[in-house]
Computed example of a mutant assay.
Amino acid sequence: MKYLTNYSILLGIGITLLAFGCEQNQKAEAQSFETPNSANKRDISEAKADVKLDEIMLPENFKIDVWAADIPNAREMAISEEGVVFVGTRQEGNVYAVIDENGDGKADTKFILAEDLQMPNGVAYKDGDLYVAEVSRIIRFKDILNNLNDPKYEIVYDEYPTETHHGWKFIDFGPDGMLYVPVGAPCNICESEDEIFASITRMDVNSANPTPEVYIHGVRNSVGFDWDPKTGDMWFTDNGRDMMGDDVPNCELNHITEAGQHFGYPYWHEGTVKDPEFGDKGGPASDYVAPAAKMGAHVAPLGMRFYQGSMFPSEYKNKVIIAKHGSWNRSKKSGYVLTSLNVDGATASGEQDFATGWLDEEAQEAWGRPVDVQELKDGSLLISDDMAGVIYRVTYSAN
């Protein structure tokens, strides 16, 4: 583990207002967060991105720009109230704080908060502290905004499984204040004796002895979830198994209504497809929770959020926006897009493409892969891309 050189730092917070020409005459609020120089600070204001923004197709009056370049392997994002964006990585092993210092709508600075961690994909921010999920442990950077120059962490829990197959984790805090942590299946398809595999767990990080409990079962590999702001129910994406052909099974969007539910893996996929290896052991499909929506085979839906901002047109309010990372072994690639769905109670419907173009369909080559989506305070949408090493920002203006 590398520890970063200590430097003193004084943090100043300023709020700058930017006017966006929205049809509703709304004014969106852009945030700035100014920081002095320190050893782990990098200027990325002039960083170049190898991207093809002119190929990204969005609905009318939407625009996409590069918000931050030089963020290698950018994966899950979490945002502080001040607009500081924390970014995990999977292959890079680093965790970043990415900052728009002058409030111009583009990031100027990144702080390297940690290096050489084991697949620190997951990041979550709560009560001033940054939580990071590695394969087998959860770590915490206390009072992180006042310690960007000298980040140190403590171990919250270090007894998650060490298997790296589906070992990277997406994490977030639920409305109950608990930290939710998935534990993927340690394989493509297998039946594990340890109930913690193929689950989503949760823990009270403020208890004297934080210990995960298995919240739900039968989840092959979830790398994205959020809570419906209307009902408080949890929704999550799940990546379907491989090696059953190009079009089977569908990846899933699932809806949790109570603890202890089982979503089918490894016995049933997409609600109705019996697994050829383990299906006979699992009983009828009716014993399991069927997906609320089928996402397409091998599209790898990852980060998802309920849009709550006011920048986008009103029809986007409460829609789920999902990043589909894209297939890795399908004969014709699928995914590499953002989609949106309507959620009404327990029903998800009307999936539509929101952003496309990271995949050249004719050449079957991708130049980018969306991973996570997060909403800035002004209602614009950030999209991380682990292939291009950037974070995009999507804005809307009717003019």
Rank of each mutant, 00 (worst) to 15 (best):
L381D: 01
T272E: 04
M1L: 15
V373K: 02
E101F: 01
Y392S: 10
A293F: 04
F20I: 13
D242C: 11
L145N: 00
E365H: 11
I171H: 04
Y288S: 04
R241T: 12
G309K: 09
I99H: 00
K48C: 10
E195A: 09
P36M: 10
E252V: 02
G283T: 07
E213H: 09
R90Q: 15
F86L: 07
D360I: 09
Y392E: 09
V248F: 11
C22V: 10
N221D: 07
P291K: 03
R393L: 06
Y125K: 06
Y157W: 06
A363N: 09
G128I: 06
G389P: 12
G103F: 01
V84E: 00
Y316D: 03
P182D: 04
R369Y: 08
V299R: 00
I13W: 00
G260E: 03
D378Y: 02
A68D: 10
K333D: 07
N73M: 13
F263H: 04
P266K: 07
G14N: 03
Y125L: 06
N6L: 15
K142R: 15
C251G: 04
K324E: 04
G21K: 12
I71V: 14
R75I: 13
G368W: 10
I79M: 06
L341V: 11
I321W: 00
D54N: 13
F354V: 01
G218A: 03
S334I: 00
C251H: 00
V95H: 15
Y96A: 11
H262S: 01
I322W: 00
D287M: 04
E46V: 10
Q31G: 00
Y180L: 11
D242Q: 09
V98L: 10
S310M: 10
Y267W: 06
T109F: 05
D233R: 12
Y180E: 05
T35N: 01
E362S: 14
P249V: 08
F141M: 13
V320I: 10
R137M: 12
Q352F: 03
R90W: 14
V135T: 15
M234S: 02
Y180N: 06
S310I: 09
S8K: 14
V132I: 14
P186F: 12
M203Y: 12
L382S: 07
S38C: 15
H166K: 08
G21T: 12
L130F: 10
M119H: 14
L53F: 11
V66T: 10
F354Q: 01
A78C: 05
E163T: 13
A346N: 11
V205A: 13
G21Q: 12
Q24A: 10
L381R: 08
Y160N: 12
G232V: 13
E46N: 14
G184Y: 04
G309D: 05
